[in-house]
Amino acid sequence: MNPMKIALSFLILIISLHHAVGQEKPTPPEGMVYVPAGEFIMGSTYGDPDERPQQIASTKAFCIDKYEVSNAEFAEFDPTFKFPPEKKNNAVIVTWSKANAYAKWAGKRLPTEKEWEKAARGIDGRVFPWGDTYDNTYVVWDQKETRGASIAKPASPYGCYDMAGSVWEWTSDWYKPYPGNKVPMEQYGETYKVMRGGSNFNNHSFIRTSQRYYVLPEKIHVYPVGIRCVKDIN
């Protein structure tokens, strides 16, 4: 870890502790975990150009689903949705508008990129939800497997599972450059939505917490993209 990263982490830790003293941790709804308000390290210095610049970002407090939404859960919202019975507990794969409609129906919403990244990596800028070291047993790779079925079952700092691998996850954001990013990309704008977390069908680097990928919201082709919702705290 470089000295700059250590200094940033320390600073954020102090700020977070300060916030935490005055904050009461609410009880999250069933199946969700609580993410406190505050700053965190967002982006990277080593990934694709669109992950830069690495920055200090902040969010309000929110709750986020512990697992991706399953086929069976989605079918409660859309009874016409069909899936093989043995895959009822697998992550659902849907377009952005369907994901958004599901989130509204559930009284939730899709996360922003900031919220997703904070829930996945916590405040210390780690590469993966569990830390900086990769291991095959930490990830759901096989599409036959259900949610949370990795061998080692590591969670993110706030207790989320499968934020690396399994299926990509929709965010509410359009694919746009981070403030201060000068690298041109013709895909930036309001054509593509950002998906996060990588899937079981790409290389290991795509499951990094800061990795961004753009996709047409209604034409996902063979990208497996699923849903993890957030809920505001009143």
């Binding site: 080593y46 694709d48 690298v183 290389n203 290991h204 680097s205």
Partner: peptide, 21 residues
């Protein structure tokens, strides 16, 4: 063409990648 790493194009020493790569 977009400057991003391809889905399966990772041999980078600074990024986690398969042993096969």
């Amino acid at each position: 063409l977009d400057g991003k790493m391809t889905l399966w194009g990772n041999f980078c020493p600074n990024l986690p990648h398969q042993e096969l790569n």
